[in-house]
Design a protein around this nucleic acid. Structure first.
Lengths: 212, 212
DNA sequence: CGAAGATACGGAGGCACCCTCCGCTTAACA
DNA sequence: TGTTAAGCGGAGGGTGCCTCCGTATCTTCG
């Protein structure tokens, strides 16, 4: 685990720089154009040859991975901060809500990502672990405080979160996702028999417009 | 709206037959290989020329649409049947659970579908309406019976359902989805202050294994 | 039934993108 | 500064997407 025991050259400066450029370009291109965007477009935007792109990211999937990895990191860090929140359930809900806002800026990324994750790659392992740990800590706190049922594990919650965020097709999807998450959190809450429906007052607005 | 007022020829028999063949082939191919599968493979499997495929379904998306439309129909019909169930909430839950099983057989289809729906096509309008109506009737019954909170509309519930079904990557995803849906339904339930946590006995199994 | 006309079929071909491969360039190390 | 390995770029072979049009087949009408 030393730094220079097995004669490893220092990585070339231009290689590092190019890798960074490609990542940045990919983030922009995928954000805008979705997973459809051609890798050649990414290379062009990054100002590197297509060959360079492929050396750094041998498969299309690898590029998604790298781009997405950063985003996941950010979500994880957010959870860390929220652990300072007083009310544990509120902290959890805040995280979920923030997650929605975060996802909202990703647009096309999500579709690409979904496909990438589907393939059962290592990306899945990484992000799942990172986020599970994050959400798990929030969850544990709430359970320990006796405010939340203990039969749902972090993985489940994470899945539910992603699921609800996934459906973003119409303009108002964010509000919907937030509402759905609130309901879910209500379902998780341990209701003291006495004030069973008290917390519902937190959901200020009723559903938008009861169709049909 | 008559049948033969504006001189419409009867559609050619071979055209109808070929369309059917392509649909069947597409269903199989997409089910197996996911959205990656080439349309030329579909054409070959259907035993028609690539040109024929493209005339019937001008865009890749159109093919997904047509295939998916049937599946949606089936889900809708299932809801009709479940309206005869006694317990309205149980009926709703049964529908959701059946939905999971249904989705489970689709495998790769879901990814393709997600992309198609994303594009805000007419498919979305159709399936959303069909399923919303189906789920809405189940929901209304439960609300009318005073067993369910009234501030969640059918659209929301549908989104939640799809969201939870979407995350299918690992072997055990079905069990997870079912559990998540149960939690969600619990969240929807109006809890009589007296027996607040009584219904939780319905969730026989605890979460599989509380990781970390 | 047979001719006429509409309609559909098939697959060649143009295009875009994927990915590989290799001669040239450039940074790291001595 | 010279040596050497790592990295760069983009030409090029391959595949799949989609269009276009000459040919085949079905419907209709006399």
């Amino acid at each position: 685990m030393d730094d220079h025991t097995d004669q490893t050259r220092k990585p070339r400066a231009d290689a590092v720089r190019n890798r960074e450029r490609v990542l940045e370009a990919a983030k922009l291109v995928f954000s805008a154009g979705g997973s459809e965007a051609s890798l050649e477009a990414v290379a062009k935007r990054a100002g590197v040859g297509i060959g360079t792109l492929y050396r750094h990211f041998p498969m299309r999937e690898a590029l998604f991975e790298a781009v997405y990895r950063r985003e996941v990191e950010q979500l994880g860090e957010l959870a860390e901060q929220l652990k300072n929140e007083k009310d544990p359930i509120e902290a959890l809900r805040r995280w979920l809500h923030s997650g929605v806002a975060f996802v909202a800026t990703k647009k096309g990324m999500m579709a690409a990502l979904a496909l990438a994750v589907q393939s059962g790659s290592e990306l899945h392992a990484f992000s799942f672990e990172r986020l599970t740990k994050a959400i798990g800590s929030l969850l544990d706190r709430a359970v320990a405080a006796g405010e939340m049922r203990a039969d749902i594990n972090p993985e489940d919650l994470l899945r539910a979160f992603f699921g609800m965020c996934y459906v973003h097709d119409q303009p108002g999807w964010q509000a919907t996702a937030l509402r759905l998450l609130d309901v879910f959190v209500d379902g998780l809450r341990v209701q003291p028999p006495g004030k069973a429906k008290a917390r519902s007052s937190k959901m200020a607005k009723p559903a938008t417009k009861r169709k049909r």
